[in-house]
């Protein structure tokens, strides 16, 4: 059984201008110990999914349909106190802006200890502190930093501290939302490498969320490509990179510079991102797609296995697969 399973999830935001369809009938599964990458441009609904899983959506968001099963329970049915036990104990998160995810008024060590003691109230504060020191050693930070305040950390140090914090309660799943966007490339590679080795060692699952296809290729075992709130392609990283089936994925890959190819010009996807207040009735990508036909305009394509398919896992939502 899958550790996490999203079934037919639809999510809307009610704003002053109208209703945004942020996630549309999305189904996705993740096994224990697996790493999944969710790729898409900003506004494609990646972060909304992360917040929906942890039930952190703002009051103006509405989940109209769907279920989120985690370890056999539908998270959407849980009460708020039950959900608080799931948060961090079972599903932790590394936030996009690590700079701002720590309370500036307390030392970082105190915040990690606070988190551990919230979920394991019977633990002595001494034991909690010992565990925090182990975690710091694991992410390569000196223990002296525990007594320091967030503003005394550099960007990379904060990101590592946030990873240590995510590991504090030994969760089964970590959602890493743009974990390295704010860092330089060398620091990015190092931190991702460390996170991956910790994942393999502990048998955790990780969902990476990013717009960066190159980074995904480095860390994710499976990749889901999102466009305007719809999962347009899903498959093994190798398959998906080698033979993208959806025109949008192909476009994304063409926009990534490659060392091997002799490309002098990067291609970009023509057109504007979809107006989510009034998304097209059919395929949401059709206004920008070179292969669009009348059918694309009228009928939304289902996510179906593609022809060239090794294990039946590679799926795409397109009427005219590549």
């Amino acid at each position: 059984m899958a550790l996490l399973e999203l079934q037919d999830l639809s999510l809307h935001y009610h704003t002053g201008r109208g209703v945004i369809s942020a996630v549309n009938q999305l189904s996705l599964a993740l096994d224990a110990g697996e790493s999944l990458g969710l790729v898409g441009e900003s506004g494609s609904g990646k972060s909304s999914i992360a917040h929906a899983i942890l039930r952190l959506l703002p009051a103006y968001a509405q989940i109209r349909q769907g279920r989120i099963y985690f370890a056999g329970r539908n998270l959407l049915d849980l009460t708020e106190p039950q959900m608080r036990e799931v948060r961090w104990r079972q599903i932790a998160m590394v936030f996009q802006a690590a700079m701002n995810t720590l309370n500036p008024m307390y030392t970082v060590g105190a915040q990690v200890v606070e988190t551990i003691l919230t979920h394991e109230p019977n633990m002595s504060s001494k034991a909690a502190r010992a565990r925090v020191e182990e975690l710091y050693a694991l992410v390569g930070l000196p223990c002296t930093l525990l007594r320091r305040y967030p503003h005394e950390y550099s960007g990379g140090m904060k990101q590592r501290a946030c990873i240590a914090l995510a590991l504090a309660c030994n969760p089964q799943l970590i959602i890493a939302d743009e974990p390295t966007t704010a860092l330089d490339v060398i620091m990015q590679a190092r931190i991702l490498g460390e996170l991956e080795s910790i994942r393999k060692e502990r048998g955790m699952s990780v969902i990476y969320i990013s717009h960066d296809m190159a980074m995904m290729a480095q860390v994710a075992e499976r990749i889901g490509v999102m466009y305007a709130g719809v999962l347009v392609e899903y498959g093994c990283t190798i398959d998906l990179l080698a033979a993208p089936a959806h025109p949008y994925t192909a476009g994304l890959l063409a926009a990534v510079p490659s060392m091997a190819d002799d490309v002098t010009q990067l291609q970009e996807i023509p057109g504007e991102p979809v107006d989510l207040y009034a998304p097209p009735a059919g395929c949401r990508f059709y206004p920008r797609c070179s292969r669009a036909t009348a059918q694309c305009k009228e009928q939304a394509p289902p996510l179906l296995p593609c022809r060239r398919n090794r294990d039946g896992e590679h799926k795409a939502a397109c009427w005219h697969l590549l």
Binding site: R87, F95, T101, T115
Partner: peptide, 23 residues
């Protein structure tokens, strides 16, 4: 962001209210 992050960590509402918001 740190208030959202505090909620994600499953901290009790009283802790968020006093140690995060009010503080």
């Amino acid at each position: 962001d740190y208030v959202l992050a505090a909620r994600a960590r499953g901290l009790a509402p009283a802790v968020i209210r006093n140690r995060y918001l009010a503080r």
